[in-house]
Design a binder for these strands. Structure first.
Length: 298
DNA sequence: AAGTTCCGCAACCGCCGGTGC
DNA sequence: GGCACCGGCGGTTGCGGAACT
């Protein structure tokens, strides 16, 4: 017996959304917030699959979405992140305010791939095309014939932790452990143990990748946001381990802002008491908009 | 102007991991 | 441990408009 379908397909609409459907969805989420996508369509009076509603909201209707062309800076950031993370679009999207994974995925496939090829760079491996052709034999780094290139799952996980650790620790460790003076002090990964277990080749590759990333002018917005409508982590929480701290660092720093009509601004560091009650610098982005929100009734 | 091809993007599909029973 | 459910993700599809002939 297979899994039951996520919805009654016989009674659901498919294809493009109408303005009326959009409005129903917006109105419903405005009042009730995100979540429980399965029951949302019925509650909102929509003849749509819950998944479809989720996708429509996340990719199109969310109020914090940035519209318009990608900037050159965004292009370069996507390329750099893709070289580190591969086709982990949601992770990449988490570092591009107002952009969705779907949008980035589409943009990658339609623009950046071509751009890299024009530069003579293989979009899968991020290596020079001619160099790959010459060195591909028997190399575990040869991804030309396989989709998503880069790193094994364990390696991706490690990189994610390190990336998060390195560019969130300034803010985040200061919040969870104000006395910590360094990444290591705060037990914010990058402690020696995992590194010692890595093969030299892996270490060297990661070191190089990190070096490239952090030597660049990458502005990765060193701050922590809240996923909307979720229970917020507290210091007393049993989940307050180094591992969970990293997991709690959301990948979507800006991408989860709810409609301002149902949310109030809250900065995590302010919220948990490491900043004054006034909005700290984390609370506003470069455009002056508030970045952190939570629903009134959460 | 009409037909055809190309391209971009919204939406769908299937799978996976996490969670609760 | 097994099952069902749910949310989320990445890959793929197909529609609609732009570009070309």
């Amino acid at each position: 017996m297979g899994r039951s379908p996520c919805c009654e397909k016989a009674h659901t609409n498919k294809g493009a959304w109408t303005k009326e459907e959009d409005q129903r969805l917006i109105d419903y989420i405005r009042v009730h917030g995100e979540g429980c996508w399965r029951s949302l369509p019925k509650a909102a009076g929509l003849l749509r699959c819950g998944k479809s509603c989720r996708l429509r909201w996340i990719n199109y209707l969310r109020p914090d979405l940035k519209r318009g062309n990608f900037t050159e800076e965004e292009d370069e950031l996507i390329i750099k992140l893709h070289s580190l993370l591969g086709n982990k679009w949601s992770l990449i999207a988490g570092r591009l305010p107002g952009r969705t994974d779907n949008e980035i995925k589409n943009y990658w496939n339609t623009h950046i791939k071509r751009k890299l090829i024009n530069r003579g760079v293989d979009p899968h491996t991020h290596q020079p095309l001619n160099e790959i052709a010459g060195t591909a034999t028997a190399s575990h780094l040869d991804f030309r014939n396989s989709s998503p290139p880069p790193l094994p799952v364990a390696e991706i996980s490690l990189m994610k932790q390190r990336i998060n650790a390195e560019y969130t620790c300034n803010d985040y460790t200061a919040m969870v452990n104000p006395k910590a003076e360094s990444v290591e002090d705060a037990n914010c990964t990058s402690s020696g143990t995992t590194t010692e277990e890595e093969p030299p080749q892996l270490q060297q590759r990661q070191k190089q990748q990190r070096q490239e990333l952090f030597d660049s002018e990458l502005n990765l917005e060193l701050s922590v946001g809240l996923r909307p409508f979720k229970a917020e982590p507290t210091l007393a929480s049993p989940a307050n381990t180094a591992e969970s701290k990293l997991q709690q660092v959301p990948y979507q720093l800006f991408g989860t802002v709810q409609s301002a009509m149902v949310a109030q601004a809250v900065c995590l560091c302010c919220h948990i008491g490491f900043q004054s009650s006034e909005l700290c610098r984390n609370c506003q982005n470069s455009n002056g908009f508030y970045r952190f929100y939570r629903p009134f009734d959460s």
